[in-house]
Structures are given as structure tokens and as C-alpha cells.
Nucleic acid binder design. Structure first.
Lengths: 359, 359
DNA sequence: AGGGATTGATCAAGCGTTTTAGCAAAATAG
DNA sequence: CTATTTTGCTAAAACGCTTGATCAATCCCT
């Protein structure tokens, strides 16, 4: 019977219900204006804290109270529409899920974008060209300020046609086309740093297990290795450069060849190879770093930090790539004319390298 | 002299130049309308392929040509404004960079969102409460359809106040508060599956190295272990459950205790512990899977797939969590009343388990 | 007291769309 | 040949906000 009462009468308790579930139909400027007894212009002025505007303190307060009461949130779409320029930056990535790396790029881009009042619109293409086109179209329709086009590993790329309809910066990839803005890791410096870690500890005969597959990283890291040796006056010995597929298997498989070289240290193309090499070396009863010192490349945390012993390596600066990409897009960092901007790869020293006992 | 000609006369080649760098000041509906000699209404109608609208084929073509010529892209902001509902879904994550997991959630969410015509607006908070509030505010201002609030490891969370201003779904976390929509991994089933892998291969004395730190995973994975044993009629032996910090060190450190238990198989709380255990076992001269079978949990690719031997494990379904979150948000999957939706954790068999030789 | 400054707030146009109602011309029916 | 329907298209309002122009009231000088 009591319920009967409810189902009949006037919706007297509706207001309360509305307050609880105010969810849909968001509060607008106009409603705030009405509640405060002022014009929408006035509300807009106090919302945006325009210093120039002359609004009495009393009115300001009234408006702010109304905003508070109603739980007003500006409609960013409307703002964007009138202001003409959106606060979006697009990020298209080819492999968000497949690697931990993309996450770092996103993170860096997002932090930096945020810092300048931009929100990140991301799209994952997993290498699918059609998806990519759609993603870019979507971003263009949202009138993004610009697009970051990123790849999960450092490589050359061609530029999708629609990308040109917007400002864009290539992140972790580059194009032969002149005038293209891009930011990539400094592989050469990275290779140099990796080698230097070993040199610094007195090693002279240092092997380099390079990748078999062609890539900017392959050339750059080798180049850096050569430069570091040269700087120390050590002649480059092509016999100390091996090649293997850049994964655990490859590293493991290279063990045998490596041991023929009679070196005291080895620099691996990446951490995964180093991980495989650890296994190979251990099988041979060799200890790291006592019998042989190892450095990797990439600083793939889950691996490098947790191998036994933890692996000294050189970090691929994905976070920085994302951030620098945004800065370049916004014109805060100047793009150098001489190709892509190169981001420093920092050394991360752990325990896989020890000073060579004097012979 | 020839250049003189250029710098004086009419800007006869301006159109070409404009065509090249049409970039800024995007083309609007009105411009297309003018070019095609029709009203904006007409253009809108053909852009949106309204079947009901009566537009002659000839006019349609004229409009489409104009669109092509000018490179028109609709302004999504304007569309959103008038349609009232945006095509955004927000995703706030507490650790995009720190783990590979968040990337998978993003990927799943993004795929599913896309499928339904939504774009993903993401924000990374790295656990910073203030950032989080800002991020949610931003999303609310963009009038997102709803927000996915995700954590990188499965845990209880409290619900930020502003989150309630929108539809939301908790992803990989949950709240005690009744009526909250959430999706989490099915830890119990996962624990059961992990144990079953071992049972299936004939193992009866199976140790479980659990985590020391409290978490839904800790309880759930243990519970699953018990259930699986029980289903096989094997009495639960508390003595076979060890505890260690859930990382490599922990797994390594647990080796000694484990070996006292005289088991033929061990189920580790996660892959990182398994990785440490591999080292410990190897040091003892024990071989996996011949002397002892190992399964992990999480399926952290970089580790599990590349250990020697590759680790059998149970996958944490992050991609699915993201996708299911979106579906629940959009009301495509029903939220069950009985707490969070539980997502299946699939078994991933590799080579760390082998049939037990008959005693 | 009259003129100019200053203060506090409003008006109204406009941002790029969508969409309903309506209008003129053409086609069809009677 | 008129009345009705159909066809093809447009006018205009609306979405929520910003902002330069404007206006009324108050203040300060001389």
C-alpha cells in the first residue's frame, strides 16, 4: 500500500533523485548564468579568470557558488569550436601492446603534452595500413594540433598521405624525404657508451655480437663500437664482430663462436641477446662478470634489471622520444635541418661488468 | 629578369601554392557548399549519406567532387556539439610506462572502442592523485561517454569523487562499494589452471610459492591451487606452500626451502619468481623440466617466452580486460550484480613442464 | 552642475555542424 | 487544365561557448 502511494502521486522527490544522478544532460553555462542571475558572458568571464574583465567581487562569488552548486564543467568541444584551435595531439603507434616500449613513448608524449595544456588522442594500428588511415582521419576530424607518428623500433618509414594534412613529427622513425621532422635515438652514441663501459673497466679485447637483420640500430651501434675503440687507440678487429639473430636464441647460439675469440668482455646488440648469452656462458661454467663482462642495449627493464647478475646496458630513451616529439611538434625544440634529432641514450650500469684483473 | 616577372605580376600561381600547403584553416562545410553551388544542408546530407534525403545523383556528384577538390574533413567538435554526445571514451591508467601490462589494457580498450566508433582519450597518472583529478576533469570537459579507471595490478581501489560525475568502469581493480561496475582477472580460475597443467602431467606433490604481499591475486591463486588439488582428490598440504617476495630475488631465494619439500613440480605466484627460481635450480644442478617442473603466472612475454626452457604459465588477460571494460561501459556486456566481472585467464603451455616418469 | 573616466555587466555575432520544417518546381492524377 | 503528390533543395534554429562592442550607472574633476 505504501508503495502504491509512490507509484501514483506527483514526482515530489524527483529533485533529490536528480541531484544524485545528475549524470546525463550536463550543466551548461546558461544554467549557471540563470542560477546566478547574470548573463552567460559574465559567467564565461569568471570561469576563465579573465583579469581584464571588470566583474565585482560580489558577482564573482555568486557565479562561483552557482558553479559549485550545479557542478558545472565547461564543454571543451564548444570551447574548441569557438577558439578555432583544439587542444589535442594525436599519437599513432604501430605496436602499443606488443612491446613495453610504446608505453614509454606514450608516457613521455602524454606528460609533455599535458604540460602544455594538450590532451593525447592515441591510436594503435598494429601495423595495419587501413586502420592507420582511419586513425589519422579520426585525428584530423578532431582537428588535432598535430600528429606524432611512432614506431616501436627505430626504422625508416614512409609517410602516409593523410599525415601530410596535419603538422606531424616522426618518433623513433625517419624518412628520407628532406624537411621531415623526426626524433630518433642516438644509436652511435649509444654504441659508444656501451663500449666505453667495458673500456673503462680495463677491457681491451671486446667482442660485439651484432644483429643479422638490417636496421639503423645495427649500423649505429657498430659505428659507436668502432669509435669508442678508436678513441682508446685500440685497432678495430673485424674478427671480434659476430652476428646473430637479435633474440635470446641468437645470443645463446653465439656463445660457442664467442668463446673462440678469447675476449674478456662482450657487448651485445640488445638485452635479449645478452639474456641468451647468459645461459650459454653459464652452461660453459663461465661466470659473469668474473670470467667475462657483458653489456647489453635497450635497457629492457624486465630483463636487464633482473638477470643474475643484473645487466649493465644502454637505455633506449623512449620516454624522451615521446616528450621530444611533442616539443618539436609545438615548435619548442627546433628541428635541426640535418635530419632527425638524435636523443641521448643513457648508460645504465649494473653488475655484469667488473674491472679486469691486471694480467 | 625572369624572376622579376614573378615578383611583380599577379599572384597567378597562388592556387598551386595553396594546394601544397593547405594545412592551416581547415576547409569547412560552407566552403564546400559554395564550391558546389549548394547549401550547407545539402552538403551535410550527402556527407552523412542520409538515405532518406532526396538529393539528385547529379548534385551528389557535384558535392563529392567539391569535397575531393578541397580536401574537406568534417569538424568532429562541431558534430559533437550539435549531436550532444561525444565519441570519446576516457582511460585513466596508473602506470602506462612502468609495466608492459598497461599497454595491453590500452590496446584492448582502443580496439573495442574503435569498433563502436569511439576514440580513446588516455591519461597517465603514475599514481599521482592530483594528476588523476586533473585527468578526470579533462575527460569530463570533453564530455566523454564514460571513463575506464584502470590499475596495473589487480587490487582494491577507492573511487575518486569526480569519477562519479561520469559513467565509469573499474578495470583490473574493484571497490567494496555495491553497484560499482568492474572487470578483473579470474585469479581463482587462473590458479586452478596453473595447477592443472602440472596435475595433467602426472605431478602429485606440487609446491606453490606464493607472494608475501597481500593482494587479491595472492588469495585467489592459492584458492585455485587448492581447488585443483581437491578436484584430483589430493589433500591440501600447507607445508607445500611457501611464501616469498614476488620478484626474481624472491624466487631465487626460495630455492633452498623448496628443495627440502621433495616435490616434483612447483607453481610460482608469477613469472618473475619463476625466473629467479630457474637460476636457483640451475645452481643446484637441477634441470627443468626433467628434475622439476615449473609453471608461472602472468605470462609476461619478455620473460616467460624466452627463458630456457620457455615457461609454461597462465596469462593475465589485460587485453581482454580493456575490451571488456569498454563493452561494459557501453552496456553491451551486462554487469553482473555479484561484484566484478571475472575474465578468464588462459593457460599458455611451453616447455617447463613434462610428464612425470612413472615412479 | 556638466564633462569625462571608470566600473560592472550585457548584447549579439560567430565557431562548424545537424536537422526539421518548408518552399518551389516538376511530375502525376483526375 | 487544375489539384495533388513527389522531388530536390534551402532557411534557419540550435548546440555551448567566447569576445569585442556597447551601454548604463557611478565616480571624479574642475
Amino acid at each position: 500500500m505504501i508503495s502504491q502511494e509512490n507509484s501514483s502521486g506527483t514526482p515530489s522527490d524527483a529533485p533529490a533523485a536528480v541531484k544524485q544522478t545528475q549524470r546525463h544532460q550536463p550543466v551548461t553555462l546558461r544554467q549557471v548564468a540563470e542560477a546566478a542571475g547574470v548573463s552567460t558572458a559574465t559567467v564565461s568571464l569568471v570561469v576563465n579568470k579573465k583579469k581584464a574583465a571588470r566583474i565585482s567581487d560580489e558577482t564573482r562569488k555568486r557565479v562561483r557558488d552557482a558553479i559549485q552548486d550545479l557542478g558545472y564543467r565547461p564543454n571543451a568541444m564548444a570551447q574548441t569550436l569557438v577558439s578555432g584551435s583544439s587542444r589535442f595531439i594525436g599519437l599513432v603507434a604501430d605496436a602499443i601492446a606488443t612491446t613495453p616500449f610504446a608505453g614509454q613513448i606514450i608516457h613521455g608524449a602524454q606528460d609533455e603534452a599535458w604540460k602544455h595544456g594538450y590532451a593525447l588522442l592515441i591510436a594503435n594500428t598494429e601495423g595495419n595500413r587501413e586502420l592507420e588511415t582511419d586513425a589519422i582521419a579520426m585525428m584530423l576530424e578532431y582537428k588535432v594540433r598535430g600528429i606524432l607518428y611512432s614506431t616501436w623500433f627505430h626504422r625508416a618509414t614512409d609517410i602516409p598521405a593523410s599525415l601530410r594534412e596535419s603538422d606531424f613529427v616522426l618518433v623513433n622513425c625517419f624518412s628520407a624525404e628532406p624537411g621531415t621532422r623526426a626524433v630518433v635515438p642516438d644509436e652511435i652514441q649509444g654504441g659508444r657508451s656501451a663500449t666505453e663501459v667495458l673500456l673503462k673497466h680495463g677491457h681491451r679485447r671486446i667482442a660485439f655480437i651484432n644483429a643479422t637483420i638490417p636496421a639503423p640500430a645495427k649500423d649505429g651501434r657498430l659505428q659507436g663500437y668502432k669509435e669508442a675503440l678508436e678513441a682508446e687507440g685500440i685497432p678495430f678487429d673485424a674478427g671480434l664482430v659476430l652476428e646473430a639473430y637479435p633474440d635470446q636464441e641468437g645470443g645463446y647460439g653465439a656463445t660457442e663462436e664467442l668463446l673462440k675469440r678469447d675476449v674478456t668482455a662482450v657487448y651485445c646488440y640488445n638485452d635479449r641477446m645478452a639474456m641468451g648469452l647468459y645461459d650459454g656462458l653459464r652452461e660453459q661454467g663461465l661466470s659473469i662478470p668474473d670470467d667475462i663482462a657483458v653489456v647489453g642495449f635497450d635497457n629492457q627493464e624486465v630483463i636487464a634489471a633482473h638477470l643474475r647478475p643484473p645487466l649493465s646496458t644502454v637505455s633506449l630513451p623512449h620516454y624522451e622520444l615521446g616528450a621530444a616529439g611533442v616539443r618539436m611538434l609545438l615548435g619548442l625544440d627546433e628541428a635541426q635541418d640535418s635530419g632527425p634529432a638524435k636523443i641521448h641514450c643513457p648508460t645504465v650500469e649494473r653488475n655484469s661488468v667488473r674491472a679486469l684483473a691486471p694480467a
